Amino acid sequence: MDLLDDSAVNQRLTGVPEWRREGDEIRRKITARDFPAAIRIVDEIAVEAEKLNHHPDIDIRWRTLHLALTTHDAGGLTDADFTLAARIDEIAAPHT
């Protein structure tokens, strides 16, 4: 998987406006309606991550999820990160 340059990363971020870049990662915070909804989001993300063979870092704090994406094998951000970020946005929308 090819690394995206800064220009490509900035362009791709326009398609996932809830995400922000921090170094070689993109990050997002999701606040679910309640704890069970937060767990449902994580479950749905897990299924999608397995399909894409690309897995986010997820920290669960009650009903708040902190997510980080990077392509470790490539050493930074790739198309896979933005594909999963967009899918996470779709998954989270009905639960927030």
Rank of each mutant, 00 (worst) to 15 (best):
A93P: 00
A37H: 12
I41V: 15
E18P: 00
A74V: 11
D2A: 09
T31C: 08
D81K: 03
D57V: 09
N53E: 10
G76H: 03
D24S: 07
A38T: 08
I91F: 15
E18L: 06
S7P: 00
L69M: 11
E50W: 04
W19S: 07
H55W: 08
H72G: 07
A37G: 13
N53Y: 04
H66E: 14
K29G: 08
F82M: 01
T78H: 05
L69Y: 04
G23R: 04
L77W: 12
E44M: 14
A93L: 09
I88W: 14
I30T: 03
G75L: 12
G23A: 03
I39H: 05
V47S: 12
R27G: 02
T78W: 02
T78Q: 07
A49I: 09
I26S: 07
M1W: 06
V9D: 02
W62G: 00
G15R: 13
T71S: 15
K51T: 10
F82D: 01
D43P: 00
K29E: 12
G15K: 10
V47K: 15
E90L: 06
A68R: 14
L13I: 01
F82P: 01
E48I: 07
D59K: 14
E25I: 00
A37K: 13
E50A: 10
H95A: 10
E18D: 14
L52E: 12
V47Y: 12
D6L: 04
I91Y: 14
T83V: 08
N10P: 00
L13M: 00
A49G: 13
A92I: 07
I30L: 15
A49W: 10
L67G: 01
E48N: 07
I41Q: 13
F35C: 00
D43L: 10
R63K: 15
D43E: 11
E50Y: 06
A8L: 04
H95Q: 12
R63A: 12
E25C: 03
R21W: 00
L65I: 09
R12V: 00
I45W: 08
T96Y: 02
L52Q: 15
M1Q: 11
M1E: 09
S7G: 11
P17H: 09
A80H: 05
H66A: 14
D81A: 07
N53F: 07
D57M: 02
E44S: 15
T14I: 03
S7R: 12
F82H: 01
G76P: 03
V16T: 15
K29R: 12
A46D: 11
A32G: 11
D57K: 11
R61D: 05
R87M: 06
I88K: 10
R87V: 05
I30P: 09
I41L: 06
G75N: 05
K51V: 09
W19R: 06
D6M: 03
D79S: 01
R27Y: 00
T96R: 15
E50D: 13
R63Q: 13
R33T: 05
I39L: 15
Q11D: 03
M1R: 14
E48F: 02
R21S: 05
I30N: 03
L13P: 03
P17D: 07
T78P: 02
T14Y: 10
N53L: 01
R20D: 02
